[in-house]
Each structure stands twice: as structure tokens, then as C-alpha cells.
Amino acid sequence: MPTISEKGLNMPESPIRKLVPYAENAEAEGKFVYYLNIGQPDIKTPEVALNAVKNNTIEVLSYSRSEGSDTYRKKIANYYNYHNIKVDLNDIIVTTGASEAIAFIFGSIMDPDDEVIICEPFYANYIAFATAASVKVKPIISKIEDNFALPSIAEFEKLITNRTKAIMICNPGNPTGYLYSKEEIKQLAAIVKKHDLFLISDEVYREFTYDGYSHHSILELEGMDEHTIMIDSVSKRYSMCGARIGCLVTRNEVIRHTVLKFAQARLSPPTYAQIASEAALSTPQSYFEDIKNEYIERRDTLIAELHKIDGIRVAIPKGAFYCIVELPVIDADHFAQWLLESFSFENETVMVAPASGFYSTKGLGKNQIRIAYVLHKQHLIKAVTILKNALKVYTN
């Protein structure tokens, strides 16, 4: 029998999606499932974006330019300039989701066995894209007891080798909700400049920051144009996960030229999705303020309810809409599956994401889960009530 590749064997399963069959079985048995496992907001997509597609009179659905349409990129540049990120349309390449942006970047700046340093826990698909590109992830551990703050620069120095090409962050973070301070961003800038590396920042949650904290983009840094690459997406900002439109932004002309060759190979990003995304840019700022207030209330509700459970530890998110919760269990993967297969409370159960899939260091995160607080408050309260009762049964 023909064999599959080592790359295929090493490609990790999604910790977010691998339990879906068990959730579907639970629903088939008549249970109601609260989905806390995936960052799919229940916030309505802006009407202006949906109407741009519904009311469009296109007669031939043609290719766009490989780097995305000029009108869309021009409006994205205006959005960034509003947020103090000085770029023009030529600094932007539109991609099929932030996922494709990551794949293009890894393909453009790294050869097989090159290394990228990423703070863990990190978005699980980073390791998938690294595997696809035959790139090695060198994890640097951030800890729940420090609320997942940036590790010391001395720890980064220990990991840098002659194969290191980049440091990568997610800001605000998925799965931790951590928001890097301006000082932490400056520290990262100094080390990448010192070692002539790239600094890659996934900033798809930029609009969601709390408690008076502000987001600081790596593209606001002075003297770093050759080193910085930003990743972005409409998925979370406008609750448009299904649009699959993202972009990468860099002032480094060589990077853009290289990425464009990858973009040309896949022809173009989807036309209708670009039309919707361009229209979404006219969404008023009040939309984001309302959403931010909603997420703050959800976060505070979730944290308050979780603190009522004995034996757990919770990291307090400063941004995005995720938190990591440490449970009094040995194996959170088993617990998460058990919740769907074997447990219900008032004929309801919950689906969570085991956090081990967000670590690449073996053995870490085994007693942790990620919760996405993308449900309204009453559902969050009920979900935590189920979790509390489940832990009593499971730990006994």
C-alpha cells in the first residue's frame, strides 16, 4: 500500500474541532450543547456587509487581482491610518483568511528546518502551518500564574540559533486573551533587530481590548519596516468568519514581492467575500464599542462564575474573547470528551477546547481548557453551572 508523507503524519488534529463528532452525537441523543470551544461570535454580521453581496448586480464573477482589489486595499489602508498605522494600499496583500497569510509568510521567509519562536500556548493552527512548511516551532512558555505575560527576553535569547528566522506573537492572544503592552512590544523589537529576525504579529483581535488597555501594533514601531509583518482578518472584527478574508501588511518590499508570487499561484482571493469585507469597513465605530461592552460583560460574568468552582485557576483576559482555565483533572482531553459522551445536567452539556492542543511542549496544558466566551451571559452562567456539576461527578 502506498504511504503518506511524514508531514501528513505529523500534521496535528485541531483541538477546537476534533470533538465535533461527539457533540453531534450528544445532540442526536437529545442533549443541548453549549459550544464554548470555538471562536465563532454570535454577534450579528453588519448589515452593510451582507447587503453588499445580496444587492450586487455582478453578471460575471471574475478573478480579482492576486493581491486583492485596489478599492478594498485602499479602504483597508484608510482603516489602519485611522488606527495610527501609516501604510498605503501597496503595503497590503489580501489573503483567503489570516490562515493563508500565515502560510504565505512561512513560505516566503523560511526554508525547511528553519525555526520560528512562538509564545505558548498559541493558536493551534500555527503548528499546522509550520508543519506544512517543514518549519520548526521553538516554543517559549508563558505561564498561567503570570497571566501569560511575555517571558523574559533572556529566555528568548536562549532559543535563538542560526536557523531562527522569526518571533511570532498573537496580540491580543488566542487562546489566552493576553494583551501585550507597549513596553513588551518594544522589547521584542529590540531583540529581532539585534539578531536580524522578523517579528510577525497576528492582530486579528485588535478591536477587542478591555479595562482601559490599548492595542499596540508592531507597525507603529519606528525603524522596524524591514523586520515587521502584520497579519489581520475580518473574521472576528465583523463577525464574518465564513468570509475567509484576511491580509498581511508589511512595508518590506522584498517580502511583499515574494508573498505576491504565492498569491499569484492561488490566483486570487474570493471576489464576493472582498465585496462584503470592503462594505464592512463602513461600519460605524459605535458597533465596536457596543461589542466591546458586550464582551466585557460576558468576560466578567464568566470569570465570576468560574471563581465559584473549587480547585480551578483562571487567567484574566485583557483582550480577544478567550480564557485559559486550569481544572482539578489530570487529563482535560478525556474530561472534554467525557462531557459530551457521558454527562449531562438537566439534559444539557458543554463543549470546551482542551488546552493541550495549544501547546507544542509535550505534557503542558494537560489540565487546562480554553473557553471562548462567545455566548450571551445567561448561556455562560448555565454552561459554568454544568461544568461545576460535571467536575463534582468526574473527580469522584
Rank of each mutant, 00 (worst) to 15 (best):
Y238D: 04
A98L: 07
S5F: 07
K7D: 09
H307D: 04
I102P: 03
I109S: 06
I330C: 06
V350H: 00
V384L: 07
R206F: 15
V33C: 14
F104D: 09
S142I: 00
T164Q: 12
L248T: 14
R73Y: 02
I330H: 09
N84E: 13
V135R: 07
H334T: 13
N125S: 08
L9S: 06
L306Q: 02
N162V: 11
G68P: 10
G39T: 08
I369F: 01
I291D: 06
I309R: 07
F345I: 12
P151K: 00
L19H: 08
G30E: 00
I369G: 00
R163T: 13
L281G: 04
L391K: 03
Q337I: 05
D146C: 07
V135F: 09
S235C: 02
F321P: 02
K362C: 06
Y213F: 10
A273N: 11
V350S: 00
E24D: 14
S356M: 01
E346S: 11
Y287N: 13
F122Q: 11
L197H: 06
F343R: 03
V393S: 09
V254T: 14
L219A: 03
G173H: 11
L188Q: 02
N37V: 08
Y34D: 11
A28R: 15
S142K: 00
E145R: 14
Q337E: 10
